[in-house]
């Protein structure tokens, strides 16, 4: 099949738009995850009982949304970049940090360091937020 220069350029643009669309969805997931992480851990570790219930329910809703979003028509499959992988791995570590530290402090019987857990809650989502923001900027 003969491919004209114009048709070739059109196809390149179409494919680039598909990549952008998929990246936009992935950056949205990263941003929402990053922004939700701090409030989630605050609710689970530091807030009153009702906040823990809300945080747990919210997180379940978030996970369902994350599973459904990439399966929308036209958004199947994945695109990635090595730096995103590194940041999300770091995000996995910082995500668990508040829980691990809070559990460690509880086991050790230290109760005066809630400020440390609060700080960890604040920074736990930063790698995901940064990855999502940077990915969105590159669109």
């Amino acid at each position: 099949m003969e491919l004209s220069a114009g048709a070739a350029l059109d196809e390149v643009r179409r494919v680039e738009e598909e990549v952008r669309k998929t990246r936009r969805a992935y950056s949205t997931i990263l941003l929402v995850m990053g922004l939700a992480t701090g409030p989630y851990w605050w609710g689970m570790l530091l807030g009153p009982d009702w906040a823990g219930v809300v945080a747990g329910a919210g997180w379940i809703a978030l996970v369902i949304w994350m599973l459904v979003l990439p399966r929308r028509p036209g958004l199947r499959g994945r695109v990635n970049a090595p730096w995103v992988t590194r940041l999300t791995l770091l995000g996995g570590v910082t995500f668990l940090a508040p829980m691990l530290v809070a559990t460690g402090l509880k086991i050790a019987g230290v109760e005066t360091t809630n400020w440390l857990v609060a700080v960890l809650c604040l920074i736990s989502g930063l790698p995901m937020i940064y990855a999502g923001w940077r990915l969105r900027r590159s669109l």
């Binding site: 491919l3 070739a8 196809e11 390149v12 494919v15 680039e16 598909e18 990549v19 952008r20 998929t22 990246r23 036209g74 199947r76 499959g77 994945r78 695109v79 990635n80 970049a81 090595p82």
Partner: peptide, 22 residues
């Protein structure tokens, strides 16, 4: 051409993305 354009724009793409896009 579509494969090269997708990979040039995406850095990395999985097989499924290429299959669905192309």
């Amino acid at each position: 051409l579509s494969i090269m354009a997708a990979l040039a724009a995406a850095e990395q793409a999985d097989f499924r993305f290429l299959k669905e896009t192309i």
